[in-house]
Design a protein around this nucleic acid. Sequence first.
DNA 1: TTATTAAATGAATATTACTCATATCGAGCT
DNA 2: AGCTCGATATGAGTAATATTCATTTAATAA
Lengths: 311, 311
Amino acid sequence: MNITHIELRHLRLLQAVTEAGGLTAAAERLHLTQSAVSHQLKALEDALGLPLVERATRPLGLTAAGRRLLTLAHTALPQVDAALRDLAKLKDGDAGELRIAVECHTCYDWLMSAMDSYRDVWPGVELDLLGGFQADPVGLLLDGRADLVITSETVPRAGVAYAPLFGFEMLALLPPDHPLATKKWLLPVDFAGHTLITYPVPEDRLDLIRRVLAPAGIKPARREAQLTVAILQLVASRRGLAALPAWAVAPYLERGYIAARRIGKHGLWAELHVAVREADATRAYVVDFIETVKRDSFARLPGIRPAIIAP
Amino acid sequence: MNITHIELRHLRLLQAVTEAGGLTAAAERLHLTQSAVSHQLKALEDALGLPLVERATRPLGLTAAGRRLLTLAHTALPQVDAALRDLAKLKDGDAGELRIAVECHTCYDWLMSAMDSYRDVWPGVELDLLGGFQADPVGLLLDGRADLVITSETVPRAGVAYAPLFGFEMLALLPPDHPLATKKWLLPVDFAGHTLITYPVPEDRLDLIRRVLAPAGIKPARREAQLTVAILQLVASRRGLAALPAWAVAPYLERGYIAARRIGKHGLWAELHVAVREADATRAYVVDFIETVKRDSFARLPGIRPAIIAP
DNA sequence: TTATTAAATGAATATTACTCATATCGAGCT
DNA sequence: AGCTCGATATGAGTAATATTCATTTAATAA
């Protein structure tokens, strides 16, 4: 009679659509085509006999029915995830060690919160964060000095497995009243004659230099700072320009402390990946750490998108 | 055999398997073949990498993993059902009237409990139970004197829609020390010379007479009683034999007050169906009443099985 | 042991989810 | 207006997978 064969897939779909704010963005997150998402949503609406999303408005809004179903998704899906985690613990055990090395300075912002979430559900896993700059972080895996590395590189290495986290946009930072702030986006030439304020890392680790300025033959002066707030302060006090991930500067942008502009018309996008030893790649506590980071990041970080580069 | 993700279908499967106590019985409830259930369960177990049911024992037991997943099913599936009910209310409204006529005397046993469950989730629906014996209960629908009829007949009538509830076994009742109690099951001829104790309804409404005794040319004397306990008392005090649904006598059997035997080798099976006006057949509050009765019955009544006759 | 009932299995089929290619729609420009 | 861009919808074809059919295998009871 009531042959509404609603499935978890539909709940995940609705959740992705609302979180991503549109069908196309949801499709990317779900690793589906836009067409598939549209078809599936329509099929669900037809089966229920009710529209779930307001297509007229942008960003897409939910109908009362959509909100009710989203409420279900928010209660039921975590229960499902928890059960699957318990099953994974039954299978592989619930203990392990995760010594984490991080390549990017700003990653600590979200990593702390993700680690807190993770600790709640995997109390038996020993978490350690390796400090300091590492010349070859992925190498630490093979040395046995780290178990998991957060990195932007995905060059294949024997015995190392990569998993994508997300893509993010690097924004150029400048004082709010800077002449360049009138532009919609910045070109390589706009950086000429300005000092570039960066973390203390080699040039080939800076996406702005390696992928934008160096190819255009621009070599601006550099000044280094250890902390994100120090970089922001230097920019605000007109000591130079900087480029940081969108999520790292969002709170300062809101307060008008600094301004941010795209780098190039479509922006400068980078990606983060996780590297682990191949032998660890299927361990439940490792897989779930990666899932936790992704879930947490997509829920909390503004302006990120699914990774595109296949690992 | 590989599945991408766990789905509600799998939770419903596991629930059906444990409630029904086996794959074949679960398949009947889910309106699937035994093969489909076996394949699906195996695919689920393979995907999880863990066995869920102990196949060695009979009746089938669950493994620790199976129990964990069943726990999920018990918490998540009712949430899903509640959400779908809310959506149905959004669509069709949450108010209505349900005047219920019941053909079979023993149905009151389970109907009360089902009505209680139903009232909790559809407080806006006015429930009424029509009393007394009705010559043509289904006719009440077309007269507009009832909205829903619980009946064993499914003869097609214009404007009436039928939905199956369940099949149940009619057991012959006799005193524990009766000579016939030595038999495994009773034949028509065994009833000859005994008084048959029945509810006060016409002969053609009594399955035992219409389908077993009359075809065999046996016409036992009849004695009527209004209440189930009265019938049981008359049987126990050797005034005659009776036939009642298995669920109605189960509590008395346990206490050894009376004995029960199959009627024929495979037993005498009857079915209950719901009849509603075609115009009402898709109303959410009607559909959900039928679902509630089925759910409640399969959970509480011993010895019932899915209906076979297509309505 | 045999008869009986339940579960597993492999191949064939039906169903459905998904992709591809393209059309349509709507908001923002000029 | 008309035009472009980004997003959603749609129809047809294909890939994926759920289900059935026809047996086989295993477990139980007589």
